[in-house]
């Protein structure tokens, strides 16, 4: 069962179509990575799912309910969210901040302590949030989203602005949630490596359009092996390979060839040597996720 489904979802600002005919399918119990370069439309999409931004067209189903004005808040009772940056009242303590969310959600008071423990802020609950570090604020935002243990958690760039230790801590917390509480987590990021380490399903969005949606395994499956050949004269080597009907292309000083059997590779090196060409390198390479992301989005991913 899909916990979120969008059909033909669009958002237009003026004449610019920021989100274009998006069909997302988030399986229940998954950590769903929503990946795309900055400005691709990730936050707008997540805000539309939460009803914070009105879609121009299309429909959204969350937890089996088609979202509309009438049922939005009742559906969102089972959804926790952290959008863009954490929301907090700096002049109140961490615990006081959570008390506000707890009262609005109508969940038991004891959950405040529990979520503070989960995000490891229990020791800082009496401190004003204005005095928290960014990482602590982010964890407080996660604690607010966790109050009431929702079925679905939507986290928009939860590691933004964190230092490497903070990123790792946040990642561990997120990865822990489906197993511990049976939650489905949708996490957006422009960091490919982050999604690679957290998600089991992934969607890639580019300029508002969905360019990939499947399991992370399927994305990895796209990475093809190939041979990289470097000779003393690549231009001559290239024409010789063409004579032998072996397709190749030159990339930063290397000739990229398809995977060849050992026997054909041996024949090829012999042939090149007989043609008085020195073979400097011959190595097997695999296309990285970075290359795939680049191919799909046309933009370099942050690592």
């Amino acid at each position: 069962m899909n916990i979120i489904e969008t059909h033909d979802l669009c958002k237009q600002y003026g004449t610019a179509l920021r989100v274009s005919h998006l069909d997302l399918q988030v399986p229940e119990g998954s950590v769903y990575g929503f990946l795309g370069p900055n400005g691709a439309g990730k936050s707008t999409t997540l805000k539309m799912i939460l009803g914070l931004v009105r879609p121009t067209a299309g429909s959204i189903q969350v937890l089996g309910h088609t979202m509309d004005r009438a049922n939005r808040l009742s559906v969102l009772r089972q959804v926790g969210s952290l959008i863009e940056s954490p929301s907090y009242y700096g002049h109140l303590t961490g615990e006081e901040n959570l008390r506000i969310v707890q009262a609005l959600r109508g969940v038991p008071e004891r959950t405040i302590r529990e979520v503070l423990q989960i995000v490891r802020l229990d020791g800082q609950r009496g401190k004003k949030v204005a005095h928290y570090s960014l990482g602590m604020k982010q964890r407080l935002g996660l604690a607010a989203a966790l109050l009431g243990y929702p079925k679905l958690l939507i986290l928009d760039e939860p590691t933004n602005g964190l230092d490497p230790a903070g990123i790792q801590e946040m990642r561990e917390l997120i990865c822990d949630l489906p197993g511990r509480f049976g939650m489905t987590v949708v996490v957006s990021s422009h960091l490919l490596s982050e999604i690679d380490q957290m998600a089991d399903h992934v969607a890639i969005i580019r300029e508002g359009e969905l360019v990939f949606q499947d399991t992370l395994e399927a994305l990895h499956g796209r990475s093809r092996h190939h041979l990289a050949l470097r000779t003393t004269n690549n231009a001559v080597a290239r024409s010789l390979l063409a004579e032998k009907s072996i397709a190749c292309q030159e990339e930063v000083g290397y000739l990229m060839l398809p995977i060849l059997s050992d026997e054909i590779a041996a024949q090829l090196t012999r042939f090149l040597a007989e043609s008085r060409l020195g073979i400097v390198r011959l190595e097997e390479r695999q296309k990285s996720l970075e290359d795939i992301f680049l191919e799909l989005t046309g933009k370099a991913a942050s690592l």
């Binding site: 808040l73 969210s81 959008i83 863009e84 940056s85 929301s87 907090y88 607010a144």
Partner: peptide, 17 residues
């Protein structure tokens, strides 16, 4: 001001209208 300062609208509006 406290709502603008803490960016709380996006949190509050998922719980109340």
């Amino acid at each position: 001001e406290l709502e603008h300062k803490g960016g709380t609208w996006k949190l509050l509006e998922t719980m109340v209208t």
